[in-house]
């Protein structure tokens, strides 16, 4: 009976998704003329090289045009990390240490992890430093760095993140983000508006405040994800 109801609901949802989507032509040019933009997408495409000189338009949207939105997104991530910490909080008994719940790993994994761990960190740093030039950015780079930490946590049982350091990195990155935004207010523009020289397109030092913000976001995301992973992995069930 329940299965029948669920299938009926799925049919209704599927039909109501299919009906409007069948009107949408796949691959049609919906953004219109880029020279004289009439849509938001065309405006971003035409104005990003001249206004911000950022090669990656998505970075320009995420960090500059919708920078305030990204600040909110970063706070949601922060709230998730804090929420996990408080949900999973358990007072330790006398002499009880947190232990990881991972299985003992093989020597192959341990040796391999040691080998590619620095490379993963460097790749993550590369991705978020070049976020305004190549595909990628702070969120992606931070996630890559967190995978490096996850690899180490799975390989070595005694590998633990220092939560004090993580909190400091996270807080400093967040403060950098907000103070760069307030810097826009100080020079007489709006919050998170670009106030630095924009440089030339495709240079590493271009885009004004965008690389600074994305590097801060990269550090923040890496610290938060590493903290979440460490919290989730270091619960000892009896």
């Amino acid at each position: 009976m329940k299965k029948l109801l669920v299938l009926l609901l799925l049919a209704v949802v599927g039909y109501s998704l299919y009906k409007p989507l069948s009107q949408v032509e796949f691959g049609a040019d919906r953004i219109g003329d880029i020279e004289n933009p009439t849509t938001v997408g065309a405006y971003y495409l035409s104005h990003t090289p001249s206004d911000l000189s950022v090669a990656n338009v998505i970075t320009a949207i995420v960090v500059n045009y919708r920078g305030f939105d990204t600040l909110g997104e970063v706070s949601v991530l922060f709230l998730a990390a804090t929420g996990i910490g408080s949900i999973l909080y358990r007072r330790r008994k006398e002499g009880e240490h947190s232990e990881t719940i991972t299985q003992p790993s093989s020597q192959l994994l341990q040796a391999g992890a040691k080998l590619i761990y620095p490379a993963i960190l460097v790749l993550g740093a590369y991705v978020f430093i070049h976020g305004h030039l190549t595909p990628g950015g702070g969120f992606q780079g931070g996630a890559i760095i967190a995978t490096g930490f996850l690899l180490m946590m799975m390989s070595y049982k005694d590998f633990h993140m220092n939560h004090t350091v993580l909190t400091w990195v996270e807080s400093l990155a967040g403060i950098t983000f907000v103070s760069v935004g307030i810097g826009g207010l100080i020079v007489g523009k709006t919050f998170l508006e670009n106030f630095l020289a924009i440089g030339t397109l495709n240079d590493l030092f271009s885009g004004g405040i965008i690389p600074i913000i994305y590097i801060a976001v990269g550090f923040k995301v890496a610290a938060e994800l590493a903290g979440v992973l460490d919290t989730l992995l270091s619960i000892k069930e009896k």
Partner: peptide, 28 residues
Amino acid sequence: DPVPQALVLTAIVIGFGVTAVALSLVIR
């Protein structure tokens, strides 16, 4: 169109937050 891509970037991060909090509730 870059706008949906930027929105999806946001949505992925929020999705991560949702999954992580849900998993911690499951653990609890």
